[in-house]
Nucleic acid binder design. Structure first.
Length: 719
DNA sequence: GAGCACTGC
């Protein structure tokens, strides 16, 4: 601790913070900013008038940094130093330094908008640009004006982003603290490889044969490619002459390695402990190894520039929102290229943690220098804003208007518009864009707005106990899916048939039935394993369900039936009330079956033709036809657009919604901004986009989408 | 018939 670079800057930091309400700290990896900034300000008396809050984008970081700081100060975790994450609050009245996730701080500001208990708020890792941190940045800008005399805000960021954050906060001072990274030599390829997998394999073998000892970290896009490369690497390493080079251990590392499984646990242990002597480890990882997990001992990094990418449907086409250079790859392979220097540097930095290292970039330097953006496209420009918009509206600040909210990077007018329309359709805001009483309650629930709305409707029609389960299951859905490694393939097929089938009504009902069955076993871990369900995921569902139940009980102020296996009424095997509640909650995620086949057309503002995902348990009727109307939880774009998690609904629930769609007036929704919209029926995306733009702020996002569209069309014309 | 990454309340 004593030789952390940041401590040499203590005087300078304290002086700058004393004089300025907002300070940007550029702290490189290993500078000690996350653990030391709070301690410095604590030493210098900043905790006399309030506590120091430090936000982190990830739960593990909040916990581990808090633990470390408590250790350094020699106090018990939860006393002077504590942390707060979802499901876990380890703070007390004595707490001076509190580490928390950015999401928890947002929740706190819902009940206390001035965050009056804090004398200092440090937004750590702001360069990661998580949605929550971006909202906090906007709130902080407002808060420092209101609490200029007794609040200090520190924002830590990466080198390439510091100026921009400073500009956002009226050119506040920027302090740079060097890190403790060792130099990393960057080596470029002459051109992009035709197969990034083969190129990674070849580079890995070259390192193994020619370079001195040190572990190798290889970035891949996903589990499949990781498994392929691991097996190829094993083959090739074995065929090398014995004794000609170091022994090799090859380890996969990705998010769905189940730690509760022996094999997975063993892998994680091996990744984090030092390697045996005369042995080189190859860690083949997803970008989980970029920030979330640190592998010690890595000296060589192989970075192919590829990453898993999310595409969004616009009009009839899919566009990659990462603005990747090879957008057509995204469309055909569902693989994209990252294109920002911060991310490239982050990957390279993984090679220099213990000693000087090397990073092999499998692309030409001209790309890095000329084509890459400085920073990642922030999450706020890539995701649905309905939840954030509802949150901001519920803050109920007289000077707070979502369209005037100051974002570091404003989201596109299109996504703001989408959010407002969705919130209106599910009754969270009225036709004038004002939050309704329903919307207020929805904002209290830690769920996406469509699920909160479903819960409220379910409460009205007596099926809350079921809706709570569905909402909790969908919250954890990805962790719930059985693993899909090849060795378990056959077993899985077998066990799948043991799971309930949703009685033909669809996937939501199946999720409900699965949890109900698990509940009847008294949450038996063995039952999950027998049915190949991720134990971790199911336990998470149980936690979420409990949390949601408590919040609903508090709101309703009565005793609600929230038991997992609640009371059935006679003749309700069709789950009708629950399906209706889902229909109300997912009013903007409806689809109508095509007349002649089982494809669907989404209803709403940007209709498109989609298929039900093959994994769905939705059943066709005796004539082989799927239900006429469904709601869906997700529209995913892989090889084709698919609806994932669908539920059958009835036409007379749908009609009132469609009528409401026709009446939408986005002009009024946006709070009386000077817009004139007439006869827009379902064609709101045709509106001139500028009209909803935030005044004076350039809208990069629009041009980015346009660029992606142009690239796509050019490529299509060529074919 | 297709999977495919990572966070968070």
């Amino acid at each position: 601790m004593a030789n952390l670079p940041i401590l040499q800057f203590e005087e300078q930091i304290v002086e700058t913070v004393d004089r300025n309400p907002v300070v940007v700290i550029i702290g490189e990896t290993g500078s000690g900013k996350s653990t030391q900034l709070s301690q410095i300000l604590h030493r210098r008396g900043y905790t006399k008038s309030g506590i120091i809050g430090v936000t982190q984008p990830r739960r593990v970081a909040a916990v581990s940094v808090a633990r470390r700081v408590a250790q350094e100060l020699g106090v018990h975790l939860g006393d002077e130093v504590g942390y707060a994450i979802r499901f876990e609050d380890r703070t007390s009245e004595r707490t001076h330094i509190k580490y928390l996730t950015d999401g928890v701080l947002l929740r706190e500001s819902l009940s206390n908008p001035e965050l009056s208990q804090y004398s200092v708020i440090i937004l750590d890792e702001a360069h990661e640009r998580s949605l929550n941190t971006d909202i906090l940045l906007g709130l902080m800008k407002r808060l420092v004006r209101m609490r200029a005399s007794n609040l200090k805000v520190l924002i830590t960021s990466a080198t390439l982003d510091g100026e921009k954050v400073s500009n956002f906060f009226s050119n506040c001072p920027i302090l740079s603290v060097p890190g403790k990274l060792y130099p990393v030599e960057i080596l470029y390829s002459n051109e992009r490889p035709t197969s990034y997998l083969e190129a990674s394999l070849k580079t890995a073998l070259d390192i193994h044969i020619r370079e001195p000892e040190g572990d190798v970290l290889i970035f891949m896009t996903g589990q499949d490619d990781i498994e392929k490369l691991v097996s190829k690497l094993e083959d090739r390493v074995q065929s090398l002459q014995e004794g000609s080079c170091l022994d090799a251990i090859i380890l996969p590392l990705h998010g769905s390695l189940p730690p509760e499984m022996q094999a997975g646990f063993f892998i994680l242990v091996r990744v984090f402990s030092p390697p045996p002597p005369n042995c080189r480890r190859f860690i083949v990882a997803t970008n989980i190894a970029e920030t979330s997990l640190t592998v010690d001992g890595v000296v060589y990094v192989i970075d192919s520039e590829y990453l898993f990418v999310v595409a969004i449907p616009i009009d009839d086409f899919l566009y990659c929102l990462n603005d990747c250079a090879g957008c057509t790859y995204c469309l055909s392979l569902n693989i994209g290229l990252y294109n920002c220097r911060v991310q490239a540097n982050q990957r390279a930095g993984r090679a220099g943690r213990t000693r000087p290292g090397k990073c092999y970039r499998l692309y030409p330097s001209i790309l890095y220098n000329d084509d890459f953006l400085d920073v990642t496209v922030p999450e706020i420009q890539r995701s649905s804003l309905a939840g954030s918009v509802l949150y901001l509206k519920s803050l109920d600040l007289s000077d707070m208007d979502i369209l005037k909210f100051e974002f570091l990077d404003p989201p596109s007018s299109e996504s703001l518009e989408d959010a407002l329309k969705q919130l209106y359709l599910i009754d969270a805001i009225d036709e004038n864009g004002l939050i309704t009483s329903i919307g207020r309650v929805m904002a209290e629930l830690p769920l996406e707005p469509s699920l909160s709305r479903t819960l409220m409707e379910a409460n009205e029609c007596g099926c809350l106990f079921q809706a709570l389960t569905v909402a909790a299951m969908l919250s954890a859905e990805t962790t719930l899916l059985p693993g899909r490694s090849k060795s378990t393939e056959k077993k899985r097929k077998h066990t799948h048939s043991d799971l309930p089938d949703g009685s033909g009504w669809g996937d939501h009902i199946q999720l409900l039935q699965i949890f109900e069955e698990w509940d009847r076993t008294n949450y038996d871990i063995g039952w999950c394993k027998d049915h190949n369900l991720q134990v971790r995921g199911m336990l998470f569902v149980k936690d979420v369900r409990k949390q949601l139940s408590q919040i609903m009980q508090k709101i309703a102020k009565g005793s609600l039936d929230v038991r997992a296996n609640g009371r059935w009424k006679e003749g309700e095997q069709d789950y009708r009330n629950l399906r209706k509640a889902l229909c109300i909650g997912f009013a903007n995620q409806l689809a109508e079956r095509m007349v002649h086949h089982n494809g669907y057309r989404t209803l709403g503002f940007k209709p498109q033709v989609v298929q039900v995902h093959p994994s769905s348990v939705l059943k066709p009727d005796d004539e082989g036809k799927l239900p006429e109307y469904v709601v869906y939880h997700e529209l995913i774009a892989t090889s084709r657009p698919y609806l994932r998690n669908v539920c059958a609904v009835e036409i007379h629930w749908v009609m009132p919604i469609l009528n409401k769609v026709k009446k939408i007036n986005v002009n009024k929704l946006s709070g009386g901004t000077d817009l004139t919209v007439e006869g827009t029926e379902g064609k709101l995306s045709d509106l001139p986009k500028k009209e909803l733009n935030i005044a004076g702020v350039p809208d990069d996002h629009e041009s980015r989408i346009q660029a992606a569209r142009d690239r796509f069309l050019a490529r299509k014309a060529k074919k």
